[in-house]
Design a protein around this nucleic acid. Structure first.
Lengths: 358, 358
DNA sequence: CTGAAAGCGCTTACAG
DNA sequence: CTGAAAGCGCTTACAG
């Protein structure tokens, strides 16, 4: 026989409401949930009593009888200490959370070390009925989470595909269009040697970016290399140094995130390379960071908050068995700031002659 | 009579285990929870069967009978879209989450617009038994959450006091020591005019910082002003401009967060003020940001991840009715980087003569 | 329109 | 050491 915890006053239940109203618990439940089966006057009386005594449904009880957790899960396979460096992620989380809470869904968050650990979390959440569905981020190439959720029958939405996603719906982040805009912008400024400091190729999104980047270069009759990194500032700095010190240095560099772009800017400054006179820099993610450095960084902007919100909305629809909203492709836009400039306008010739040996 | 959702295979319950093992559900429960009341051979058999059929406890059922949600809550009264600008917060969240999940607690996260909305979330969570306890961050002066959790009997730990916290335990962030270290560092470099770009005074922590800042200035025989802001980069830039354009500009500025410090650096550069030759800059929060800009920013570093983890640990102890670990005051350390320098060493005289009019 | 009852999957005193 | 039973607070077919 359960004992009561000693904490605070006993919270009211539907039994209390039923007693006060002089009806059965069943009627109270119908009234509270807006189901047919109670007369309008009775419903109003019940609602008034619930309000008066400050009743709220016990989520555990509701979850148990309704076989529904009322929560969605987000497991993040990221070393916890690096989470801090991702303004993108914070915005995404805000967007997801705002939609979820507006729909009365709770958000379960867990940070794990790698994708294997994440699959374990997904299994456990589903087995424990902790969640009704999950959001999958940072899709990997041949991601094990996709077959897992399919096998489990766990409702899931992939945030930021595409990749091979099986039957799991996904929301694309508009990366392809973003890359095209950036390369187009740089090419229109006269750049023909455009390198890219990209993220790790294990991510499905990176493969798309690299493929589209190379297509865009060809379309612009430009050349360029891709250096892969782990997205960290130190890797961004190292890659920049490597590119600028190479035999044929670029006149423009595109970075896959804002942190690396800022690190690249600092590195260029250390090497005495003038931005944007001698080198143009573009970040693939916009953030306050890009605005506050000098020169401010040209960046691909997109509505990350809305992106997260739409993904959450899709997941709720999936969980509720409603029709999924379509994948509205994000339309990114390029925000031109001080870090990009025309080569011709700022540096006569190819602009490299005046460079110190670096 | 409940119906089964059409999703996936039926998940095993203790009834299944009891049948397979030929014992009662009660024995299964005792065995699974490591309680006395079952023989060792029986326990092992039960555990083996549970493992074999992939049993996991239904959290809703467990929560209902144990009157325990197995979750802690974190409601954030921050405009969702600005959450992105807080590396501090991301690290804190990671630390909290790591401790919680290590102890099998889930984290419920909700982002709300203001403290009033947050009190509503706390009330609802507790009434719905969604959480066993909550973490309170960004304590305000006369924060309504403190009397609320006391009245509700909702276990809570304040992250980043102090302030008037009633009976609610809190973890201090070591702000006082941090301020002293920064002012001491700048004074030892010869600075006597040290201004501070602080956060909004509605936060309890800001009051402490300002008080200690003024004490530290007096102790160092230095002078300085405090400008309050909303922590945003634009406010940081505006405050910097205001201070540098004043009749008696500072030779050093301390910023309450990294974003404002970076914005301040950019503003100084725009105004043609050389950092650190003519102006030293210090950030009160360290982050990658501080490392990647040029010059890199001197900053107060602290173990934010561990700070969050310890707060979560304290909350779990409180929820479990165990003894709370003591409030180990954070010992911050100052990381000296390129943005601070001795006045005398870099600029003869008071160093202001050479400044362009700004 | 309303009530009595069974059931969700656990936990835990109580008897044997 | 083990089993049978009640109870957590809901939801929902089923009878009236």
């Amino acid at each position: 026989m359960p004992r009561r915890q000693g904490q605070g006053p006993r919270r009211p239940t539907i039994t209390d409401i039923a007693e006060k109203a002089g009806v059965s618990k069943g009627s109270v439940s119908y009234a509270l949930n807006g189901h047919p089966g109670v007369s309008e006057p009775t419903r109003r009386r019940i609602l008034a009593i619930a309000e008066e005594i400050g009743w709220h449904p016990n989520r555990a009880a509701r979850a148990l009888s309704a076989s529904r957790a009322g929560a969605c899960g987000l497991a993040l396979a990221r070393p916890a200490r690096t989470l801090a460096y991702e303004p993108f992620f914070s915005k995404l989380l805000s967007g997801i959370e705002s939609e979820l809470s507006a729909r009365q869904f709770a958000l379960m968050l867990q940070i794990v070390e790698d994708v294997e650990a994440e699959t374990e979390v997904l299994r456990r959440w589903w087995a424990e009925r902790r969640v009704d569905g999950v959001l999958l981020v940072d899709l990997r190439v041949d991601d094990p989470r996709v077959p897992l959720v399919e096998q489990l029958g766990l409702p899931a939405v992939i945030v930021g595909g595409p990749g091979r996603t099986g039957s799991v719906p996904f929301f694309s982040g508009g990366d392809a269009e973003g890359i095209r805009q950036i390369v187009g912008h740089l090419a229109s400024l006269g750049h023909r040697r455009i390198d890219r400091v990209g993220g790790s190729p294990e991510f499905a999104a990176m493969q798309v970016r690299t493929r589209v980047f190379e297509q865009a270069l060809r379309a612009a009759r430009a050349r360029g290399r891709v250096v892969t990194t782990d997205f960290s500032s130190s890797a961004g700095a190292a890659a920049t140094r490597q590119l600028l010190n190479s035999k044929s240095p670029p006149t423009a560099i595109v970075y896959d995130n804002d942190i690396m772009a800022v690190a690249g800017l600092g590195t260029a400054q250390e090497l005495g390379v003038l931005v944007p006179a001698e080198l143009s820099l573009v970040s693939f993610d916009d953030s306050t960071l890009c605005e506050v450095v000098r020169p401010a960084l040209t960046a691909r902007a997109r509505d990350v908050f809305g992106y997260g919100a739409r993904a959450a909305q899709a997941l709720i629809a999936l969980v509720d068995g409603e029709e999924m909203p379509g994948n509205v492709d994000e339309m990114p836009r390029l925000i031109s700031r001080g870090s990009t400039a025309s080569l011709a306008a700022t540096a006569p010739g190819d602009g490299r002659d005046a460079l110190p040996a670096h």
